[in-house]
Design a protein around this nucleic acid. Sequence first.
DNA 1: AAAATGCTCAACCGCACGGAA
DNA 2: TTTCCGTGCGGTTGAGCATTT
Length: 282
Amino acid sequence: MGVNHTSNPALEMGRPPCFEDGLNKGVWTAHEDEVLGNYVKLHGEGKWVNVAKATGLKRSAKSCRLRWLNYLKPDIKRGNIALDEEDLIIRLHRLLGNRWSLIAKRLPGRTDNEIKNYWHSTLKKKVQESSSNHCKSKKKPMMEPSAESAESLKMDSCLSPNKDVINCTTSSSAHPFPLLFPVDEHPEAFTPVEPSIDGGLGKEIVAEQPPESGDEIFPVNISCGNDALWDSLMDFDVDQLCLSEILEENFASFSEFDSMTVGECGINGCQDDPLPSFSDLG
DNA sequence: AAAATGCTCAACCGCACGGAA
DNA sequence: TTTCCGTGCGGTTGAGCATTT
């Protein structure tokens, strides 16, 4: 694409400028960009509420932050998403769902907003197409965690209002996230609990850390019934995964979570020690 | 050539979280 | 402990562009 920042393409596309409550909304002008850029160069990021006061910009703190992070930040790459980046986005989305900020952290120079837009405009279709093709030749359907599974879970009222609390159903075909080990083979890892008080449907599944396992072996305490689930996955995967390692993995393993183990997935962080498969833990 | 439709992407909105008072 | 405030995140909107009919 090759956006020319000086010409401010935002003026060519997007919402028209407008004033409301004394705040300027809509596209940013080149002058506003310059003012904001100068301010951040002088004072650094953060303290966005001070930007408007200090510079006279009629913009909200949020708007300033968003503009800086998504557009003005010097190391931002725009457009021309490479194939390896595309593949990585697909993998990470399969792993993380719609956690765009986390995905973006794994793609230097890319913003969550850009990735989110790219996903919805381009990759979603690709994944769905490949998924449908894949499903034709597979017995079990491949689940996409956020777009399909999470949505179905919402429909089933199984996704708690708390975004991090996921009350899994016992349906093995509808995981809200890609399980790293097969439920059928490790029923002991899933402890049925009472339905939540707010009317959760069916049995919940709690995957607990196997008692025998040490942190160095299985540093994930997966519990569908508490907030640790996603954060554990985040800590476990994202904070340790390196782009090069993800790119070296076999993509196919990510598309077969229904029968996958940690070992098959090959998520081994930045250390040399590969994580064992779940079946090694018992 | 014109209208309709789809696509892209910057920006906004609402909610949740964490820290400070 | 509670409230307030700043920040971050994900979903959604809407204008302009591109493509199709």
